[in-house]
Design a protein around this nucleic acid. Sequence first.
RNA 1: GCAGAAGUGGUGGAAUUGGUAGACACGCUGGACUUAAAAUCCAGUGGACAGAAAUGUCCGUACGGGUUCAAGUCCCGUCUUCUGUACCA
Length: 953
Amino acid sequence: MSKYTFRSIEEKWQNFWAQNQTFAASDDAGSQPKFYVLDMFPYPSGAGLHVGHPLGYIASDIYARYKRHKGFNVLHPQGYDSFGLPAEQYAIQTGQHPSKTTQENIARYRQQLDRMGFSFDWQREVRTSDPEYYRWTQWIFIQLYQSWYDPSQDKARPISDLIALFEQGGSSALGQDLCRVLSENLSPELSVFQAADWQAFSQEQREAILSQFRLTYLAESEVNWCPALGTVLANDEIVNGVSERGGHPVVRKKMKQWSMRITAYAQRLLDGLDQLDWPEPLKESQRHWIGRSQGASVVFEVKGHQAHIEVFTTRPDTIFGVSFLTLAPEHELVASLTTAEQKQAVEAYVQASAQRSERERMADVKSISGVFTGAYAIHPLSGAEVPIWIGDYVLAGYGTGAVMAVPCGDQRDYDFAKHFDLPIPNIFKDVSIENEAYALKDPCIIDQSDFLNGLNYSQACAEAIKALEACGHGRGTINYRLRDAVFSRQRYWGEPFPVYYKNGLPQMIDPQYLPLVLPEVDAYLPTEDGDPPLGRADQWAWDTVQKAVVSNKHIDHDKVFPLELNTMPGWAGSSWYFFRYMDPQNKEVFASKEALDYWGSVDLYIGGSEHATGHLLYSRFWVKFLFDRGFISVDEPFKKLINQGMILGESAFVYRTADGKQLVSAGRIQDFDPKELQSVHCDVSMVSLTNELDVEKFIAWRPEYSGAVIVSEEDGTFKVKREVEKMSKSKFNVVNPDDICDQYGADTLRLYEMFLGPLEQSKPWSTAGITGVHGFLKKLWKLYHSGETESFYVSENTPSSEALKVLHKTIKKVNSDIQEFSFNTSVSTFMIAVNELSALKANERGVLEPLVVLIAPYAPHIAEELWSKLGHEQSIAGVAFPEHDPKYLVESSKTYPISFNGKTRFTLDLSMDLSKEEIEFAVLADERTQAQLQGRTPKKVIVVPGKIVNIVG
RNA sequence: GCAGAAGUGGUGGAAUUGGUAGACACGCUGGACUUAAAAUCCAGUGGACAGAAAUGUCCGUACGGGUUCAAGUCCCGUCUUCUGUACCA
């Protein structure tokens, strides 16, 4: 008697795979082609995995196993993004070292992952918080610091090249664009200099110049400061104005921070998207995030002032429609431009808008506010005087923080002008701006605009830019929404910067002293002086700097140099981890040249869409940088990317009266006043499939309801209300994959998660249908076991042609399903095949052996077991995947000419499996067909047994 | 507001280039086995109408139009839901 005992089978094969290193990728695979399948590695949280996490892992595992069957040398690793805020928050509360928490969480994750039978090559595991890993994160940081972006070659180059340029030709060695960078940010004597000047500059002066170009640099930048967390947050770590983790308020604050010059790569990050096989919505959101807009920069002189105001516009064609300028309240010229009469009003307005939180400003988009400065600017082309206003609809962080207002062509300018009764000159021919602005570019002709009259949008833009450049008051330019990324965090649990300071100037620690390992501290909070937590490790800082200084001969050894006490953000380690898997043990380099060249980039990357503008953009940036500097040979990290949908939870709610004295079943709520009823989450494990609550368990769990009156249904049951929400511990709707594995096994879980629906779609988790999938595995098992005793049996006879048809139909479908990532339909395909083979009582090796290979990527444990029972000693992994033999299928592409009424010739498209007799019968039998034809000659006739279904004319 | 995705039975969802709509599964109904339950197996299951039955006819893929011999699929308009994003000059 041999039953499908999934528990012992799964345990057996998981042990077998681990012992035999079945899934170890080879670095020397000869002629075998490589394939790199990667999951976005998880942050090991304390809550463990829920059934939503493995969805993507199962899909990638199926694909990885499939590719092994297809003869590829597959790299399919897994690791942990193990630096992160929750471990640190837990450390602050309990004093427990984050590395201990992290290790415990990783152990739990590993246990859960192992139960699901993934074919990960665990020899290659990486953890971002491992010093042997993050030494290379620190190393990459140093490389970024020692590089600059050269627009003339469109790539990053060593900073020494730039220094050489300065030594030879001073600032004029730079192109026009880079010269402008200098003049906009530095004093005149530092922005235009000769080679000799460069030699004469002090260390500080040189560094001030170089830091304008380095790919990572220190800058006094306005940041999102979260007082509750004591740290800076990136824009994508803030959701609705509060911190993503913890939901604490966030304020704007100026701080000296490390920044990453991702903006240098804006255009290449945009262009590179076209080559990538990524979901279009995801590419779209990266395009939007980069936010390229082409237009012009226009300089307005201010009447009676030295100052000038630079604005960016996408509509230089409308320049004669300017009737005022608007500055952001934070604009640097606000204070100096304001006239005495307006001073009070302006100050009040600036102060008021500074106090409005981000949240308020976002919530209140409609209301219009602003104030006149009293100053006037000179229109660069017409010479007209235009008033300068301040308005909070202009954002300090975009463009120059100032706009030229063209009320006839921009709705916001229009609304502002209406509100404050400013003129709205119409510069469009035959267009009414009675009620709203005319914001379309085409089709319209410019009017009332001097030399632009009669031109269309693109002609007028070109002419306006030409005129502006001629008078030195503007130029055509491209503006990006993308900002440089702040890279400093005031946290403990992150990579320390390999940086110390000499006379306020940053110095890189020599890579030979890496890793710069996190010190022990007595607490994980900022120090009393407001330094980050690393400020508590005085001895460590001293020792580290001493070591580094010894290596630097140019430095006075006796001086005390402060160490950088910030740490790197979470995305640092995740921006390059996919390379470390290629050569995880390497102590000399982050990965060897051979490994990097062999594995190249990730062929298939699976993960959630929430990383669209964070991780996926930063990784692309670092990869392009590493490529430029010759460390790697690919300039995009992820060729194909799939976003798996989120698996949502089905929360359960118990109704109770407001006073808590009665618990009300969902079917009885109409007996109560809705105002009197509240609903509370209850743990989904206490609720049956029919939404029936185990009241005793609930009361044991929530003793405050122990005395409550139970208002149940007429049949005596107590029902809960269901609602679909994100799976989360706090909503008590988490389903643990371990429980499913216990009850049904990992193969069932894997198949069921795929069966649930299309991979990319979000869907609620419901255990309702799992018995169907589990039943399928039992039927599959039975196919290989027959007779009274149900012992293993396969016949060595030649299979029947019916059985072979079923097999080859299945092979064809499964092959194409996997290539198209429609894993859900292949589960159905398997079910059909097993049902049909059972009905045929097919038990021949010629059918059953290929069938088990087909199923192996999906349900690897049962496949291995059956494979071994079929007499094979080697693992099924890597056994050649069956190809379908067309001779067992009527090819749908093949067309057969047949005669009709002795005259007309038809071509039959055999999309159904028919024998020839049936076709003839079908055509001859159908009378309606002849009526439909009406004398046309059809190209194609679609038939089903017994009748013609459709005719293609 | 903008961008993207999607609307198919009681439910999850199938449906090559337009070509038998509802595969497969859940649920439900009936039956077999059993003292019983579980498990397993068999049959039925979009709606309406006709028929004793086999079966037949009509209607059906959010709504309204259109193209076509043929539309879930293509085009135009409307509505709804989800997911991003937020005054980007």
